[in-house]
Design a protein around this nucleic acid. Structure first.
Lengths: 122, 122
DNA sequence: TGAACATATGCTTACTTGTTCATATGTTCA
DNA sequence: TGAACATATGAACAAGTAAGCATATGTTCA
């Protein structure tokens, strides 16, 4: 062996701690899981959506209510509710022409609260 | 009163459930808190950063190790570590020219795990 | 001191994303 | 049926962002 350090393509530098790297590689969840996880947190990563979730902690609400609460137009809220719905963070029920949104899941609040704990300390 | 429904500016529709809206308004954390929370989750909302955090669950690592592990170049990792550092999710120690990064906080894993629980069910 | 190396950073580019506007869908009620 | 209304959605635009390149900083060691 001419080189005893492994050069990985698209990385200009060499592995310093082989053991740590391979342990990390072994413990790493599969690609898809990590992707889904990032997608989930991405949904939490917007002020409008955070506010919507926060509002729904209190009670179910229709689109108009949320729009009024946040002083935003109905379309913007509707678009964001779609994102939340796709992430299975909210569910809805229809009553005539009114659509009521509520939390789909108890984890939502737990994730939210864990985040709060982090930003609150210091 | 000619109108008994409140029309809020920049919202084309009217409040349907006054009580729910005002309750939500009262329970809503202050603007800054919600903003910070969204910023925090935004940091979790990227596959590269998720992978970096995941690697650091196992042990501290230097920039080159992480770059090799993720098959990405050193610059990209360094940029992302900066973001993680600013969000106080990772800390670092220097040993000569090598910089070792590790988790700053126990919440990181708890937030991570809560997210995992959500995506794993169904 | 100077070469080698680990890391950081400014700039640029390609891509993503939140919001708005206009309009479509679907429901109620006179 | 048709007007009024709640919601959804497609297109367009502006703002934000991740990654790469080039280079700067700072450390070690001969």
């Amino acid at each position: 062996m001419i080189e005893d350090r492994v050069n990985v393509e698209s990385c200009s530098c060499s592995v310093i701690h082989e053991d740590a790297v391979s342990r990390a590689r072994d413990s790493m969840p599969e690609e898809e899981t990590l992707y889904d996880l990032a997608e989930l947190f991405k949904v939490f990563g917007d002020t409008t959506r955070i506010k919507i979730l926060c509002a729904l902690f209190e009670s179910e609400m229709c689109v108009c209510d949320i729009a009024a609460l946040l002083s935003m137009n109905q379309s913007a809220i509707s678009h964001q509710l779609r994102v939340l719905k796709q992430a299975r963070l909210v569910k809805y029920r229809k009553e005539g022409k009114v659509v009521y949104y509520s939390l789909d899941d108890e984890h939502v609040k737990q994730i939210f609260d864990q985040g709060l704990v982090h930003i609150k300390e210091r």
